[in-house]
């Protein structure tokens, strides 16, 4: 089987989906906040069906995120939601917890399942545990490094999805931490005046210059990384070992930014696939990203070349 890496990204709207398809994305993760975590925008089942109609003729896959930590209430509507995704013809469902796995197996066993428990998807043997229960793809935690990724790729037949670009979540609470703090400051109305998703961030005295975005939504409070992962220069290391899906996280970014990023990775992947031997990274691909990069957010290699202790 010939290797064809997938360039996967996110979309917050049909408009963004169209533009990022044009920029070269092969696949998208979309969904709505009731079931999916940290999405760029809500796609209801009708919008998902529309997305599939737009994407399918171009060979582009639509995956739907159902990787929330779910409570009893969500379970009531979950089977119907999964059936609607099946009718829409989606190409995959992203799950983090067993209730979704059980529901998909019961309602739409033909839909491929991608296991993504965010920061707790940390080893391939556990991925294979979920594989034996139906998962076909393993979405790696961002805290793993390149050596671990390379080892996993040779150890498992499951598809591997690795985030190569964008913001990452570093803390998720069910609590309304921003509102609680504003209440404590007797400033309760303040959050209403602020845009919930843009502009709020934390700083810590020992880490000057680092800005950690924070926002609240129906799923609680999310704190995000102060830098943007960018593996463009070294994306060939992932292609060499055959990583199946390279993900660009587009949440909290403008469509223009995501277009520039998708375009850059598209160029790099196409150049590599055309002639792996002769492949050489081109600085101008990165320039396209740097031109739109928020100067307050560094581009970094994340945990790809780090050792952690514990």
């Amino acid at each position: 089987m010939t290797y064809k890496p997938e360039l996967l990204t996110t979309a917050g709207s049909i408009e963004e989906l169209k533009r990022l398809m044009d920029a070269g994305a092969d696949a998208f993760v979309i969904g709505e906040a009731r079931y999916g975590m940290r999405l760029g925008g809500d796609f209801d089942p009708a919008a998902i069906a529309e997305a599939v109609k737009l994407a399918a003729p171009r060979g582009v896959n639509i995956y739907v995120s159902l990787n929330n930590l779910m409570d009893n209430n969500v379970l009531d509507s979950l089977p119907g939601y999964v059936r609607s995704l099946s009718e829409a013809g989606v190409n995959g469902i992203v799950f983090g917890e067993p209730a979704v796995l059980m529901t998909v197996r019961a309602e739409a066993p033909h839909i491929p399942l991608h296991w993504n428990a965010e920061m707790t998807s940390t080893n391939y043997r556990t991925a294979e545990y979920w594989g034996r229960r139906g998962a076909t793809r393993f979405v790696l935690a961002r805290e793993l490094n390149m050596d671990q990724i390379i080892e996993m790729k040779s150890a498992t037949k499951l598809q591997l999805e690795v985030q190569v670009h964008g913001i990452t979540n570093i803390y998720h609470s069910k609590r309304s931490l921003v509102n609680s703090y504003l209440d404590h400051q007797q400033d309760s109305g303040r959050l209403e005046q602020l845009d919930h998703h843009r502009g709020l961030y934390l700083t810590e005295d020992e880490r000057p210059g680092e800005r950690y975005p924070i926002y609240e939504d129906a799923n609680g409070t999310h704190i995000m990384s102060s830098d943007d992962l960018c593996m463009l220069e070294n994306v060939h290391e992932l292609l060499e070992v055959g990583v199946d899906s390279l993900k660009i996280e587009g949440v909290m970014k403008s469509i223009e930014y995501n277009e520039a990023v998708v375009r850059a990775y598209r160029q790099a992947i196409d150049a590599y696939m055309a002639d792996p031997e002769a492949y050489a990274f081109q600085e101008e691909w990165l320039d396209g990203i740097k031109a739109v990069q928020d100067p307050n957010r560094e581009l970094s290699y994340g945990f790809f070349y780090k050792e952690q202790v514990y």
Binding site: M119, T120, R142, E143, I170, H172, S173, K174, R175
Partner: peptide, 9 residues
Amino acid sequence: SSFSGRCVL
């Protein structure tokens, strides 16, 4: 204060 396990601060 996070969901257990969902914190990499």
